[in-house]
Computed example of a mutant assay.
Amino acid sequence: MQADIILETGRLILRMPVIGDFETYAALMASSRSTGMGGPFDKRGAWGLFCHDVAQWQLLGHGALMVDLKQTGECVGQVGINGGPLFPENELGWLLYDGFEGRGIAMEAALVMRDWGRDVRGLPSLVSYVSPDNHSSIAVAERIGGVLDNDAARPEPDDLVFRHFVR
């Protein structure tokens, strides 16, 4: 298995998922907030996604990290680099749990993950697949330098694709 990855910013710790993270993750995936990710999902579907996030580390050398607030230790969401047969390109993605939006957390976590992908994994480019109705994620993608790429392949025909040139 990939060694434990821990990334830090001034206020965040990004760490490997653990089983204790699943119930909160599953609750988000069961809610209407997961619509842009193909949800809502039942518990079985959420478990498959959670395991996919973890398995990518072993199979691809990247995957998802949970986002904790340093000050409280509270897990507030997830950021990751997704790949494999379900994604046309390596995707930089993020999600925040209810009540943590609007604080710059997603942007901060995504920047650290993007830079890790460039500096440690040597990825030449990443994309973010965003539902056109997800205005918050569109704003994050743009704030971290993503450029709309209308010609890129996408897993869902209606997704917007933001390209992050990391090299």
Rank of each mutant, 00 (worst) to 15 (best):
G80Q: 01
E23Y: 12
L96G: 00
V130Y: 10
S32R: 13
A152Y: 12
V112A: 06
A110Y: 00
M37H: 07
L126R: 01
L28T: 08
T24V: 08
R103P: 00
G45C: 12
G36Q: 15
S131V: 00
G38K: 10
D4N: 09
G48F: 14
R15W: 08
M37P: 03
F162E: 06
A3K: 08
T72W: 06
Q78N: 06
A141T: 01
M113G: 02
E74N: 02
I13A: 08
A141C: 08
L65K: 13
D115T: 09
W57A: 00
D53G: 15
D53R: 10
D159A: 09
Y129G: 01
R167K: 01
R11P: 05
S136H: 01
V54H: 12
L28G: 13
K43H: 14
A3L: 07
R154M: 11
Q78A: 02
F162C: 02
S137D: 01
L92P: 00
L69T: 08
E23Q: 14
H164E: 03
M66A: 14
W116H: 11
L86N: 01
F50M: 08
G10S: 15
W116M: 00
A106H: 10
Y97L: 03
G145S: 10
T35I: 15
Q78G: 04
L95E: 00
R143K: 14
A152V: 06
W47Q: 10
D158M: 10
W94F: 09
G36N: 13
L14S: 03
E156I: 09
E74M: 05
D133S: 07
L28F: 15
H52L: 11
Q58V: 12
L86Y: 06
G122Q: 03
L60N: 06
G102L: 04
W57E: 00
G48L: 13
L49G: 14
G117D: 04
F50K: 05
E8F: 04
V120S: 15
F50Q: 02
P17K: 07
S125T: 01
R44V: 11
M66W: 12
R118V: 04
C75R: 13
G63C: 06
E23C: 09
E156W: 13
G102C: 06
P40I: 10
G48R: 15
E8I: 09
I6P: 02
D4G: 07
I144N: 03
D21G: 05
V18L: 06
E23V: 14
G36H: 15
G99F: 06
G117I: 02
H62S: 02
G20L: 12
C51A: 13
